[in-house]
C-alpha cells in the first residue's frame, strides 16, 4: 500500500486564513483560479486585478502580483496592464456589485474590445461587504437591507444575467456560468475557469466566468441552507451553462 497526497493547498494560495464568513464560497472560487494557474505553471507571469467588495483582500490570499482597482474599474485597470504587458496572464476578480453595478461600463467595453483578459465574476446576489444591500443580481422578491419588502421588478428591475449579456458581445471568446454548490458543479467550474484562461492565452478575446456563490450571512441562512438555496432558487434565475465558446464557433477569427 502506498499513500499519496490527493488534495492539499496549491502553492499560489497563501497560508493566511481568510476573513470570509463561514460557508462563504469566495475561498473556493479563488482557490480554483490558483489551482489552474499553478497546474499550468502560469503563476509567475500572472498579474491579478482585485476589486472592491468582500474579496478586497484577495492579494493577501493569492500570491500573485496584484493591483487594486477602484470600485468597478478592474476591467479598465486590467486593460492597462495587458496592453503594455501582452505576455502576462491578467485576470480580474470581481463581485456582482463591483462588476454589474458601478462597473457596468468597464466590463461591457472591455468585453466589447475583446481585451485578452480573464474575468472571474463571483455572483452571490448581494453587497456582502457593506452588510447585505440589494445588488444588480438580487433575485426578484429577495429581501435585502435596502429592499426590505423584496426586490420589486417593476421599480428596481430584474437581475442582470451577466454571463448571457457578456456572451453577446463580439470581443468575448468564452462566457459561462457555473456554481460551487456540489462536486459535479465544481468540476464544471474548474473546466470553465480553464477555458476562460485558455482563450486569453490563445489571444482569442475575453474569457468570462460567472460563479454562483453563497452569502450565508446576508441571506440569513446557515451555510448548508445557503448551499441548498443555490440549487433551489439561484440556479433557476441564473441558469448554468456555456453561453459562448469561440472554439465551437466555426469561422471565428
Amino acid at each position: 500500500m502506498s499513500e499519496t497526497l490527493a488534495f492539499t493547498r496549491t502553492p499560489s494560495v497563501a497560508e493566511t486564513p481568510t476573513h470570509y464568513c463561514p460557508g462563504c464560497q469566495h475561498g473556493v472560487a479563488h482557490r480554483m483560479v490558483a489551482e489552474y494557474l499553478d497546474a499550468e505553471n502560469l503563476a509567475e507571469k500572472t498579474i491579478m486585478v482585485t476589486s472592491i467588495g468582500c474579496s478586497v483582500f484577495l492579494y493577501n490570499y493569492l500570491r500573485f502580483d496584484s493591483v487594486e482597482a477602484p470600485h468597478g474599474r478592474a476591467p479598465a485597470t486590467a486593460t492597462g496592464v495587458k496592453r503594455v504587458s501582452p505576455d502576462k496572464v491578467v485576470f480580474t476578480y470581481q463581485g456582482d456589485g463591483d462588476l454589474a453595478s458601478i462597473g457596468m461600463a468597464e466590463i461591457m467595453h472591455a468585453a466589447n474590445r475583446g481585451e485578452r483578459i480573464t474575468v472571474v465574476f463571483v455572483n452571490n446576489t448581494v453587497y456582502g461587504m457593506t452588510g447585505g444591500q440589494m445588488a444588480p443580481t438580487t433575485l426578484v422578491g429577495q429581501k435585502t437591507t435596502t429592499s426590505p419588502a423584496g426586490r420589486c421588478a417593476s421599480t428596481e428591475g430584474a437581475p442582470f444575467r451577466m454571463a448571457e449579456i457578456v456572451a453577446g458581445l463580439g470581443g468575448v471568446a468564452f462566457s459561462a456560468r457555473v456554481a460551487l454548490n456540489n462536486v459535479k458543479h465544481l468540476a464544471q467550474a474548474r473546466k470553465a475557469i480553464r477555458r476562460a484562461f485558455e482563450v486569453q492565452l490563445a489571444g482569442q478575446g475575453m474569457g468570462f466566468v460567472e460563479l454562483l456563490a453563497t452569502c450565508p450571512t446576508n441571506w440569513k441562512m446557515t451555510p448548508v441552507q445557503a448551499n441548498e438555496h443555490i440549487e433551489a432558487a439561484i440556479i433557476p434565475t441564473f441558469p448554468l451553462g456555456v453561453f459562448k465558446d469561440i472554439a465551437k464557433n466555426a469561422g471565428a477569427c
Partner: peptide
C-alpha cells in the same frame, strides 16, 4: 480519498491522503 470534502471546503482546512491498495496499484 475522493476529495469531495476538501474541494467543497472554502477554507482549505482539509488535506486528503489517498491510499491505493497494492493490487489496485
Amino acid at each position: 480519498g475522493c476529495t469531495a470534502c476538501a474541494q467543497m471546503c472554502p477554507d482549505l482546512a482539509i488535506v486528503v491522503w489517498r491510499t491505493v491498495k497494492a493490487k489496485e496499484a
